[in-house]
Design a binder for these strands. Structure first.
Lengths: 230, 230
DNA sequence: CGTCGACTTGAGTTAACTCAAATCATGTGG
DNA sequence: CCACATGATTTGAGTTAACTCAAGTCGACG
């Protein structure tokens, strides 16, 4: 696939005039990262941002004791690492490929010139950042105002919506990583999955496959309307 | 003070050509909110965004049980409520004036036209959103990876840096509101302030005035290097 | 002086954590 | 194809930070 063809599939670059797409191909740098390879670390200077072409990348924070909080997992088409580009600060978190990933890297200075010439590109980037703020708002709400069962319920609902299948779903990440994404630890996640199974809210093969048995109840858990019994 | 003079003092509109400033004055709407008055609620449709001219505004989430998590407190010069403008969604949180506040309101459609014509304005807005993402990242880290004493320590350090005085500081919000900003409740905040006082880390008049006695220790608390003893 | 709201303190509960051990899944070399 | 090493997940037992509920205490203001 040609470079332009790959770039047009990136939502951030949707609806751009042909001219802009061509300019983008001129500044993009193709990079490949192996599974578990660090892409950047918190505090690094950011001289550009990335877009995932294939594979997946996790953005995360680490506590001094080594506990990890995943902020995002980005897949194909999604940009990340833009904050330092526009805020002029260092990366606020770490990025690591969770599987072999191909990335496009756009150096800041060249991208700046492009944005100054292309209002659509600026608008698209504003939309991306705004959506991310929206997602962070939801994560803060989860962490501060919900218990782990509620967060898990919300995630399962999100997954079942994302995957077509109404009630059958497959975890797209390991349970350890899911724990980190939900702001908890594997032991706690495991216990809560067991409780949900015991309460006949879900059914699991013990692996990554989960079947939702009681969506109504799951929704009430996610909204905090009810609590999970012991 | 003239409208243009007020608008140029807003950081978001820094370094804009005279023409753009004039256009802004043409679309701005002046609004006044009383203390405790709701500005918008989560889920409301957002047809524009605001800039605080005077007073202060809190942005917050509420749990079903009524617990509040403050996301931000904005003061003069700071914009808020931009997410729905660019993401095309509803407000992800609530906004309330915590004191009598004068706001400038910029309707979306007119502002869109302006951004499309002014790359500087777009860049400034990108910088604002990026900084906000950075702040949210820090809040998520605090909530997920730090204990309340660490969050409080970080806030006290932030305050002492913001206010000139090296070790003497004055809380700019009530302790209940501070508790909500730190993701905890007034009782817990009160107990931790008492412990910090007992450990001779701070000294307080029981009101809003606090003196930092051991900044080094406070910094270690904020970074998670040490923990607060009972 | 009395009332109101804000803050503090006490006592008890609990969700989630830590640490340790057992179990299971997967991939490798023999 | 089996036996084992490795990493992921689960389960058990005990601890704890922070919560809830209830009862003061304090300060500002009419």
């Amino acid at each position: 696939m040609s470079l332009v063809n790959q770039i047009v599939t990136i939502p951030l670059f949707q609806d751009l005039p042909q001219k802009d797409l061509k300019d983008l191909t001129a500044i993009v740098i193709h990079q490949v990262f192996k599974r578990a390879q660090i892409i950047f670390s918190e505090g690094d200077e950011g001289k550009g941002f990335y877009v995932v072409i294939s594979g997946r990348v996790k953005i995360f924070k680490l506590s001094p004791e080594g506990k990890e909080q995943i902020l995002h997992i980005f897949g194909p088409g999604e940009p990340f690492g833009e904050v330092p580009v526009f805020a002029g600060k260092c990366f606020p978190a770490n990025a690591e490929a969770i599987e072999k990933s191909r990335l496009f890297y756009f150096p800041r200075d060249a991208f700046f010139d492009l944005i100054n010439k292309s209002p659509s590109l600026a608008m698209n980037m504003l939309a991306v950042l705004s959506k991310r703020l929206h997602q962070f708002t939801a994560l803060i709400e989860d962490l501060s105002l919900k218990e782990v069962p509620g967060r898990l319920a919300a995630y399962l609902i999100y997954l079942s919506e994302q995957q077509k299948s109404t009630d059958d779903l497959t975890l797209d990440i390991s349970k350890s990583q899911l724990a980190s994404l939900l702001g908890t630890i594997p032991e706690t996640l495991s216990r809560i999955l067991a409780r949900m199974t015991r309460e006949a809210i879900i059914e699991s093969d013990g692996q990554r496959h989960i079947r939702i048995l009681d969506l109504k109840l799951l929704e009430k858990l996610a909204s905090g309307e009810v609590r999970l019994s012991k």
